[in-house]
Design a protein around this nucleic acid. Sequence first.
DNA 1: TGCCAGGCCCTCTTTAGGGCCTT
Length: 220
Amino acid sequence: MVSPSFSVQKDSNQQRSADTLIILDFETTGLSPNMGDRAIEIGAVKLEKGQVVDSFQRLMDPGFRINSFIENYTGISNAMLAGEADCETVMTEFADFVGDANLIAHNASFDKKFLDAEFERVGFQYSGGFSCSLLLSRRINQDAPSHKLGDLIRYKQIPSEGQFHRALFDAEMTAKLWCLMIDDIKQQYNLAEVPFALVQKICKTPKAKVAEVIGKWRGE
DNA sequence: TGCCAGGCCCTCTTTAGGGCCTT
């Protein structure tokens, strides 16, 4: 069992850099912002050199009642959202948290479309790249029976005490999974570091050619 | 009336179809 170091320290100087990673997760009213769905919770952790240095969690009022499926799925009720700030207020705060960092999410295509939609409403565009722990897992954990976040946490025997389908907990679990996969890549391919650009390249590579791509990256 | 996401990825593919994953 491997347990990535995960102590939370406050980022006192608010320094931002392209080397900083933000691992984020949305809870939403549904699957598609194009169908009118909105975010109801954002959770994120900030990683620097594999260490969590800050975190962000806010509920937000989408402006309409959420259905019972979402209440049951997330544990977030309409009563919990009543009186919370609206999405625009929360996402403006989150834009400040994100800065110019690179971004990661599990099944990033889902979180990216909500992030893009909510940021567009507040006129913010992030400058960092976006990568996906699910795509990386499909290439690194090829024997995993499933690539659902909860299943991967159990498969990798990562300690977890909390409620899945809440934004901050899922972001924390994704961060642990991410760190473990990066460690696996370092160990398997004898790399001192795994730059974000290499991860993005791996995620675009067919599974059968991952070793070849990493070998080329190393200059072999 | 009935349906309404969408990107990725595999295969019985590529002029397509269907499962996986996210809420």
